[in-house]
């Protein structure tokens, strides 16, 4: 099983020194992904989910950031890979799409040229070949009038179309893994569902693995096989999507699920998890969710809960996981 992982993150820690203090953005995250698997990564803003998966492409400037632990791609550790080697992995083996399609495209270059750039870099295509391929890619991401659109600048496209162009760039060199960092957060709800359907379709067509980062449980539910719930730079629960939704083990996961607005219940008020995310400059002694947890006991406040395995390949870091179940 160990050999069959395309991505393996082991005890990843990322610390940012900011103004004399240290922000512990990621505190010992371990997660892995089988080829072609889709992992949903859930958590509130600032819980370390983006930092964790940006580290897979080494997009975090280090120094200043201090990164420890290990990240393996297809069994090869990337931690000590030189920049030149990383450039061959980025956009070729692993691609990434981001939250703000408005700001993630170069405003002074045509869409076609921006798609062609990856193809020329990684596939050694000529500009002409690359532009032809760019049209095919835009058709693949269901961009209307793809032939004309390669000559468009980003500002001429709507947010949804720009995100489609972003996806076309990411998929240009048929990566084995796509990291989607909140790709629908900045979009209208209708466009959101279009993009999710598109990613679903592309996954089926290409068989690539996907890491889908979101703060919205509802968004990932239909898309991923497995879910990892992040809280304060740690994974508090991991498991199959179905299991997590049916039977969340961690009180935080349960809270997140309750936060999804439902039309089929009587309740009038939307559920919220009381309190706010902890300050990451100090790591608390016990469970980091304890201050907000309705089930917290003295043990929770003093003893850090370990990741415990549960049947069905699940794991959870909570003292009460078994009893709450």
């Amino acid at each position: 099983m160990a050999e069959n992982k395309m991505l393996r993150i082991k005890d990843l820690r990322v610390v940012f020194p900011v103004g004399g203090k240290q922000i512990h953005a990621v505190n010992g995250v371990s997660v892995d992904l089988a080829p072609g698997e889709a992992l949903g990564v859930i958590g509130e803003s600032g819980c370390g989910k983006s930092v964790t998966f940006s580290s897979v492409l080494k997009l975090i400037q280090s120094p200043p950031a201090m990164i420890s632990g290990d990240i393996e791609l297809n069994g090869r550790s990337i931690m000590d890979l030189p920049e030149k080697e990383m450039q061959k992995i980025r956009g070729k083996e692993v691609s990434m799409i981001f939250q703000e399609p408005m700001r993630c495209l170069n405003p002074v270059e045509k869409i076609g040229v921006q798609i062609a750039e990856s193809l020329r870099l990684h596939e050694g295509m000529t500009m002409k070949q690359a532009l032809n391929r760019a049209v095919e890619l835009l058709k693949m991401v269901e961009m209307p009038d793809a032939e004309q659109r390669i000559g468009c600048y980003p500002h001429q496209l709507s947010g949804g179309l720009r995100q489609r162009a972003m996806i076309a760039i990411a998929l240009a060199c048929s990566p084995k893994l796509l990291i989607a960092d909140e790709p629908t957060t900045a979009l209208d709800v209708t466009i959101q569902s279009q993009i999710i359907r598109l990613i679903q379709k592309l996954r089926k067509e290409t068989g690539m693995g996907i890491v889908f980062i979101s703060h919205d449980m509802g968004v990932v539910a239909s898309l991923v096989d497995r879910i990892a719930v992040f809280y304060a730079g740690q994974i508090v629960e991991q498991g199959n999507t179905r299991d997590i939704f049916r039977n969340p083990l961690h009180p935080y996961t349960a809270g997140l699920i309750k936060c999804i607005p439902r039309l089929d219940t009587e309740s009038r008020r939307l559920y919220t998890i009381r309190g706010s995310t902890p300050n990451l400059t100090t790591i608390p002694e016990g469970c980091c969710f304890a201050p907000r947890c309705p089930y917290a006991t003295e043990t929770c406040r003093t003893v850090k809960p370990e990741q415990t395995a549960f049947p069905g390949g699940r794991s959870c870091a909570c003292h009460h996981a078994a009893s709450l179940n």
Binding site: K88, R90, K92, R103, C104, N106, S118, L121, H122, A170
Partner: peptide, 15 residues
Amino acid sequence: EEDFIRTAKAKGVSR
């Protein structure tokens, strides 16, 4: 500092 520079980096573009 712009986001599209990060995009370029994520594409594998050289420094």
